Simulated assay, not measured.
Amino acid sequence: MATSSRALGYLESRKNLTGSALGLVGLALTFTGLAGAYWPFVIAGLYGAGALIAPPERPAAPDFPDPASRLDELRADFAKLHDYLGEVELPPAASGRLTELDALLAALLEPGWVADALATDPEAVYSLSRTIRQDIPESVDTYTRTRWWTRLTPGTEPPERHLERQLGVLFTEADTIAAALREAESRRQQTHTRYLEDRQRNS
């Protein structure tokens, strides 16, 4: 099967097609009498020359997912996270932290120019993906389980303090991403200003 596939692939290759085209030229020369008694060598030589000068085969580039489609998947997971958090009872302070983080994540994932800029930064997309798919669910779930044990062993450190600290760290990470996007737009604006001023001076 592999041998027949390679043979079929060569028949369809540029080398064979180019060589065959020049071979037909040699055949035409034979019929007109220009090739003389050496016509087999003329045809074979033209075929070989065509096979040599044909451009090499170029394998197709891999078709990776579009960055925008990755954000669509992340938005769907963000909606699932919302459904999960809606079933969890959190203390007021942690709930306030989570609300701030939720608003920032929603703004970054909002379809539009911000999300378009975000999609060009794979590290930022990965960081948000980790926050939504791993960090927030793990923080909330760990709080829920630890709170149950705390009720059995009073006097230990309240688990909500750890939850508040964790959500604070996650907010800082997301805010850093937003600041980087904002800085990129600011540099873009400054570059355009310099371009316009240079154009005016050179006109």
Results as ranks from 00 to 15, higher is better:
Ala2Leu: 07
Arg6Pro: 01
Ala7Asn: 07
Leu8Arg: 01
Leu11Ile: 02
Glu12Val: 01
Ser13Tyr: 06
Ser13Thr: 03
Lys15Ile: 01
Thr18Gln: 04
Gly23Phe: 00
Gly23Thr: 01
Val25His: 03
Leu27Met: 09
Thr30Val: 03
Phe31Ala: 13
Thr32Lys: 06
Thr32Gln: 02
Ala37Phe: 03
Tyr38Met: 08
Trp39Lys: 07
Pro40Asp: 07
Phe41Thr: 02
Val42Trp: 06
Val42Tyr: 02
Val42Arg: 00
Ile43Lys: 06
Leu46Trp: 02
Gly48Val: 08
Ala49Trp: 06
Leu52Asp: 01
Ile53Gln: 11
Ala54Cys: 04
Pro55Ser: 08
Pro56His: 05
Pro59Phe: 06
Ala61Phe: 06
Ala61Gly: 00
Pro62Lys: 11
Pro62Met: 07
Pro62Trp: 06
Asp63Gly: 03
Asp63Met: 09
Phe64Leu: 14
Pro65Lys: 04
Pro65Phe: 05
Asp66Tyr: 00
Asp66Gln: 07
Pro67Tyr: 02
Arg70Phe: 04
Arg70Gln: 09
Leu71Tyr: 04
Asp72Gln: 05
Arg75Cys: 02
Arg75Met: 04
Ala76Arg: 12
Phe78Val: 01
Lys80Glu: 11
Leu81Trp: 07
Leu81Pro: 05
His82Lys: 15
His82Tyr: 10
Tyr84Thr: 09
Tyr84Ile: 05
Leu85Thr: 04
Gly86Asp: 12
Glu87Arg: 15
Glu87Pro: 01
Val88Asp: 04
Glu89Phe: 07
Leu90Lys: 14
Leu90Gly: 14
Pro91Phe: 12
Pro91Ala: 11
Pro92Val: 08
Ser95Cys: 05
Leu98Gln: 12
Thr99Tyr: 15
Thr99Gly: 10
Glu100Asp: 15
Ala106Lys: 15
Glu110Asn: 15
Glu110Ala: 15
Pro111Asn: 07
Gly112Ile: 05
Gly112Met: 11
Gly112Arg: 00
Asp116Asn: 14
Leu118Phe: 05
Thr120His: 10
Asp121Leu: 11
Asp121Tyr: 08
Asp121Arg: 15
Glu123Arg: 14
Val125Tyr: 00
Leu128His: 04
Ser129Thr: 15
Arg130Cys: 01
Ile132Asp: 01
Ile132Leu: 12
Arg133Met: 07
Gln134Tyr: 11
Asp135Gly: 05
Asp135Ala: 12
Asp135Met: 13
Ile136His: 02
Ile136Trp: 06
Glu138Thr: 15
Val140Ala: 06
Val140Arg: 08
Asp141Pro: 10
Thr142Val: 09
Tyr143Glu: 10
Thr144Ala: 15
Thr146Cys: 02
Thr146Asn: 03
Trp148Leu: 13
Trp149His: 14
Leu152Gln: 13
Leu152Asn: 14
Thr153Ala: 02
Pro154His: 03
Pro154Thr: 06
Glu157Arg: 14
Pro159Lys: 08
Arg161Tyr: 11
His162Leu: 10
Leu163Cys: 15
Glu164Ser: 12
Arg165Glu: 12
Gln166Asn: 14
Leu167Asn: 11
Leu167Ala: 10
Gly168Trp: 11
Val169Arg: 07
Thr172Phe: 02
Asp175Tyr: 06
Ile177Val: 15
Ala178Met: 12
Ala179Arg: 13
Glu183Gln: 13
Glu185Ile: 00
Arg188Thr: 10
Gln190Val: 12
His192Cys: 10
His192Ser: 01
Thr193Gly: 04
Thr193Pro: 03
Arg194Trp: 13
Tyr195Pro: 00
Leu196Phe: 05
Leu196Trp: 07
Glu197Ala: 14
Asn202Val: 14
